[in-house]
Amino acid sequence: MTTTRYGALLRGINVGGNRKVPMAALRDVLTGLGHSDVVTYLQSGNAVFTDTTGADESALAAALGDAVQERFGFEVDCLVRDGAYLKSVADACPFPAASLRPKQLHVTYLSERVDPERFAAIDQESYRPEEFRFGDRALYLYVPDGLGRSRLAVALSRPGLYRGTVATSRNWNTVTKLVELTHD
C-alpha cells in the first residue's frame, strides 16, 4: 500500500468573516474522506494529510471540494499537491528567498499551466521593483513593500487572467511550512 503526503489548499475561506470553515471541522472532513495524519496550518485553508487510496491530485481535490460543500453549504475551490511538488515549487523560486522577508514573496498555485500570453497586457516594467515570474503551475510574486501595498498584486488579481483555472496564493512562510509539514 502506497502512502503519500499531500498539501490541500482551499481558496477564499475564512476571509473577512465569510465562508467560515473552522480548522477542526476541516480536519474532520479530511479524516472522513479516509485520510490520516491530518494537520491544518493557520485559519486560511491549508491542510496536510496522508492518503493511502492512490487517487490522483485532481480526484482528491474534487472529493475535498464536494465534502466541504456538503458540510458547510458553499463551494470552495481546492487544490491538492503532493509533498514533492510543494518542495519543487519552493526550490525553484526564481527570487532570492533566503535574503527576503517572507512578506515580500508569494506563490500563487494554479490548477494547470497558464499561457503567459494571458499576462502580456501587464507591463512589468511599470511596476518595478515588483515582479512576477512563472513556474510549474505556479506564479511567483515579489513585492518588496508587502502585498497590501502592491499595485502589481492588484493587476494580477483581475479575474480574466485565471479564467477556468483555480488559483490560490500563499505567502512564503506558508509555502515553506507546507513543505515542512509534507516531509515530516
Rank of each mutant, 00 (worst) to 15 (best):
G7S: 13
Y142E: 00
G65K: 02
S157T: 05
T108W: 05
L64W: 01
I13L: 04
L147K: 04
L10F: 06
N14A: 06
F72Y: 15
G83A: 09
V38Q: 08
T174F: 10
A98Q: 14
V15L: 15
K20A: 14
S36E: 15
T174W: 11
E131Q: 13
D136K: 15
R118F: 07
G7R: 00
T50I: 13
H183G: 12
E75P: 02
T176A: 08
M23A: 08
T168A: 06
R170F: 05
V80A: 13
Q43Y: 08
V143M: 12
R149G: 05
T31R: 13
G34R: 14
D66C: 06
K20I: 15
P22L: 07
P159E: 14
D123M: 09
V154M: 09
R149I: 01
D123F: 10
A63D: 13
K103Q: 14
H183N: 13
S150Y: 05
Y109V: 02
A59K: 12
K177C: 07
P102N: 13
L9Q: 01
F134I: 07
R27D: 07
R151I: 01
A67N: 07
E180G: 02
S88F: 07
A61H: 01
T4V: 12
E75V: 08
L141S: 06
G45D: 03
E130V: 04
A155Q: 03
T3C: 12
P94C: 03
G32I: 06
E180C: 01
T176S: 12
S58T: 15
R81V: 05
N18Y: 10
P96H: 11
L26C: 10
V15F: 09
N46I: 07
H106I: 00
R27N: 06
N14Q: 09
N171C: 10
A153N: 12
E70H: 11
L60M: 09
M23D: 03
F132I: 00
K87A: 15
I122T: 03
K177N: 09
C78R: 00
Y109N: 02
L110F: 09
L161H: 03
A67R: 10
S126E: 15
T3M: 14
A8G: 10
D28K: 15
V179H: 01
L42Y: 08
A55R: 15
D56L: 08
E180R: 08
A92Y: 13
P22I: 04
R158N: 10
G146K: 09
V68E: 00
A47G: 02
V38I: 11
V38R: 08
F95V: 04
R133V: 07
A98L: 13
A24V: 15
Y6G: 01
D82P: 12
L9Y: 09
E131T: 04
A98F: 05
T3Y: 12
Y85P: 00
C93V: 07
